[in-house]
Simulated scan of single mutants.
Amino acid sequence: MRSERRILRALSLCSLAAAGFLATTLLADAADKITIMVGGYEKQIYLPAKLAEGLGYFKDEGLDVELLNEAAGVDAENQLLAGAVQGVVGFYDHCVDLQAKGKFVESVVQFSQAPGEVELVSNQYPDIKSFADLKGKNLGVTGLGSSTNFLTLFMASKAGLKPGEIVTVPVGAGGTFIAAMQQDQIQAGMTTEPTISRLVKTNAARVLVDLRTVEKTREALGGTYPAASLYMDSAWVAAHKDEVQKLANAFVKTLKFINTHSAAEIADKMPRDFYVGDKEGYIKALEAGKGMFTPDGVMPEDGPPTVLAVLSEFSKNVKGKQIDLSKTYTTEFVKAANASIGQ
């Protein structure tokens, strides 16, 4: 009897030990999983997110990264603030806007130094030649409070239009944006590739203001405008430096891949449905616009002041507020990534 009890006790202890090991392993796995929401991952401006996944760079760093898709950046921002995701691939200007509301998030990898957006105008309105001519019109943006909304309002103000002389309409991107323009719900709107090429190719719209290159962005906005980035809650970054460093390593390697490969080679790594049935057009658009991406993930020094100037022009949240730009981004992780990868 005693022998049987000893055996049963030993088996019970083994089972508990195994269960404890399994629980520890599951907790470790759960801790290693990072969820990142992308403000429309089929958009070329956010290409580094899916490209990093496709190249296997997250796995190379030992990360389990899940990418979620959300059409509007402002909705992705809300998911981050709610704690539903650990990071957002979206525009840096949210970091400035949120600080004005008492929320601290920071760009940890800066993907681009130009918005990669254009203001398209419907060819049903041939008389519209400048932004000032958009007075009284409905202008499409991805969402109210989104970066496209920020930029649209700024350019309207710069063109001399007063508040209320344009109406911004949330229409998303891709098919919903195209349908809104075709149905005359919007007469112009701000969008990205591949939506731009789809509308221009069919002669449904033309480019009114181009923000796809650094040069044209400086001309339109008065300076470099850091846009697409990986931004995260500052407290989470401080508490998870190892994970953030691994993410920075993966994204810096991705940006270097973009900088050293052709648009065709990059396109081959992307999901086929991103081409929207026109791979040649996708490649052509990427070739023309890939200069927007930073080669190293580092925030351009003149970028944050330009973003602050744009938001201060019209945003009630930011206007008159003291913003500490040094707390809206960090170069700690990308500089370490570049040093380890080698310049």
Rank of each mutant, 00 (worst) to 15 (best):
P48C: 14
S197E: 12
A205Y: 11
K129G: 04
G289S: 14
G102L: 13
E332H: 10
G223Y: 02
L153K: 12
H94E: 07
A82M: 11
I258T: 05
F91P: 00
A337E: 10
A188K: 07
D93V: 02
L13A: 15
Q185N: 11
L199W: 11
A288T: 11
T202I: 14
N69F: 07
V252Y: 09
T191K: 09
K158N: 11
M232C: 10
V121F: 05
V200P: 02
Q187I: 06
S12Q: 11
R272D: 09
L230E: 00
A339E: 12
G73D: 03
L286A: 10
D97P: 00
D278G: 06
A220C: 05
N259H: 14
A49Y: 06
E313L: 07
V118A: 14
S312K: 10
F104M: 15
V252W: 07
T148Q: 04
T24W: 15
D273N: 13
D93C: 05
Y57M: 11
S197R: 14
F251A: 02
A49C: 07
V141W: 01
V108I: 14
K335A: 10
S147N: 03
F333N: 01
G175H: 15
A84K: 14
I258E: 06
G172Q: 02
S229F: 01
T176M: 05
A10R: 14
T328Q: 08
D75S: 12
L199G: 03
A84H: 11
P163D: 06
S112G: 03
K253N: 09
Y92E: 01
F314Y: 13
V334K: 03
E66P: 00
P115T: 05
S147Y: 01
N123K: 15
E219H: 08
D210I: 07
S197I: 12
L81P: 00
S122R: 05
Q343F: 13
Q182I: 04
S234V: 05
S157N: 10
I186H: 05
T35R: 11
A188S: 13
F131G: 01
A82S: 10
V307Y: 00
Y275T: 09
Q99W: 08
G160D: 06
K316A: 15
Q86I: 01
V200I: 12
E193T: 08
Q322W: 12
F177P: 00
L8A: 14
P163R: 07
C95I: 04
V85Q: 01
K50F: 13
L13G: 03
R272I: 11
V105E: 02
T254C: 10
D29S: 14
V105A: 00
Y57C: 07
M232G: 00
K59E: 14
D268W: 10
L286C: 07
N259K: 15
N123V: 06
D302I: 05
L80T: 01
E301R: 13
S15E: 09
A220S: 10
G160C: 05
E219W: 05
P305Q: 02
L11A: 10
T202H: 11
K246N: 06
P271E: 06
G40P: 06
L63P: 00
I166L: 04
M155V: 03
V118I: 11
K256F: 08
A30G: 08
A159C: 04
T254H: 08
V334E: 06
K158E: 14
D242H: 03
I45S: 08
A250D: 01
N69K: 09
D127H: 14
N317Q: 12
V108G: 00
